[in-house]
Design a binder for these strands. Sequence first.
DNA 1: GAGTGGTCTAGACCACAGA
DNA 2: CTGTGGTCTAGACCACTCG
Lengths: 252, 252
Amino acid sequence: MGKPSYRDIAAILRREIEAGDYERGSLFPPEPVLAERFGTTRATINNVLRVLRAEGLVSTQQGRGTTVTAMTPRINRDAISRYRKNSRERARGAFDYEVRKLGMEPRSDLTVGRAVPPADVAAILNVEPGQEVVVRSRRMYADDVPVQIAPSYIPLDIAAGTVLEQSDQGPGGMVSRMADLGYRQVRMSERITVRPPDEEEANFLQMSTDQRVYVITHVGYTADDRPVEVCVHVMPTHYWTLDYSWEVDPAE
Amino acid sequence: MGKPSYRDIAAILRREIEAGDYERGSLFPPEPVLAERFGTTRATINNVLRVLRAEGLVSTQQGRGTTVTAMTPRINRDAISRYRKNSRERARGAFDYEVRKLGMEPRSDLTVGRAVPPADVAAILNVEPGQEVVVRSRRMYADDVPVQIAPSYIPLDIAAGTVLEQSDQGPGGMVSRMADLGYRQVRMSERITVRPPDEEEANFLQMSTDQRVYVITHVGYTADDRPVEVCVHVMPTHYWTLDYSWEVDPAE
DNA sequence: GAGTGGTCTAGACCACAGA
DNA sequence: CTGTGGTCTAGACCACTCG
């Protein structure tokens, strides 16, 4: 029976957190205190907290301290149903619906402008590298905790001078507005990857580099198979689960 | 102009790896060598390698060393098309197809038996906690690199004594065999989460705890909406991307 | 047994948040 | 200013892999 390793200490603290010994959103004991409690040094406690951060149980901000993560139930993003018209019009959009379902309060910012899209987005939209598009950038919160960044890119020939360059979008969101403009989306595709957050993302989403984000590249196509909108969702993995469901075509 | 931090060192090595200075699959310089090169200590180099591991660029095994990750292009899992009958029958299954598309050689093991499923799986299948089901456990490799663990659970009243308890499954895979038995799946759902690997997963998938796995809980339903099969895919995030695409129902 | 990374100690300085 | 975590040094012992 040796000394507890950092994994053992993490296991002890994990049990305490899951048992509710620390209030959600409250400050965790400082590293020197934990070091004393477990008869070790800050370096080891650092490792312990890295484990707990990776699991999404705590979250650390330099200078402030480590807090017990406020959001234990994960937000569920149901990709297919969220783009049905019914869902879009209910509860002012899919995100609002998803967050309210957990009993939390949704909120979001929107910034509208023009910018050169990332190279991969430009390639999907078939716009020349370096050419500007309309960007509608949403930043989303649940109970004031930032939980998602989602810039949306639309080619200029579709969006320039239209309601898509305005902040107010009305019921049904973007997909409905584009349909009004004659660009009805009939097919969606999403590609999911996972990576560490970059500096800006880590900053806004209050994440450490021990945590990860989903990157969902969502593309909407019109009936003539033109990609008319790309939305890149960046979401901390410890706040979200992703759902997809579909019918199996018996003929194929 | 201070000393380079571990992030700076990581950035230098990242560029070197991406420029192809190290052969894929070859050993990376040992920590003491890197410490000397950058005028620092092993502790700092440890941090550097943690960053590179998190990005999936290198992979470390204790006692052996750090290797430059063999697989730069990620395997693409297209959830919807992989369950179409055409795809299933092509190239001996969806996994084979996905891997061959990258020019790599797929391989997989299958273990068939009975076991008590995890609680969440039991709940989905509506079987009593503690009751056994048939488990078909696949372990998958690409060019002999382990890339996925996927146990599949089927209730006993469906699978007991059938071909589903045998190792050889024939063309079209499980879904076709279950259809033959009168359990045709007409609807699929998948729920995606991300977490650090547990000890067994880290061991088999040759991952460190700095890396993450997707956990995809796939459920197949028959026409009377009964869940007849649950498959839990565990896949390192740095080896895979996930694709979904669907038609938008204009009526809804 | 030699060489690898995993982990730990003891101590230090720094960046940052908040009163 | 005080207290927080971020990062680093210098050194040590251990667990594991492989020849």
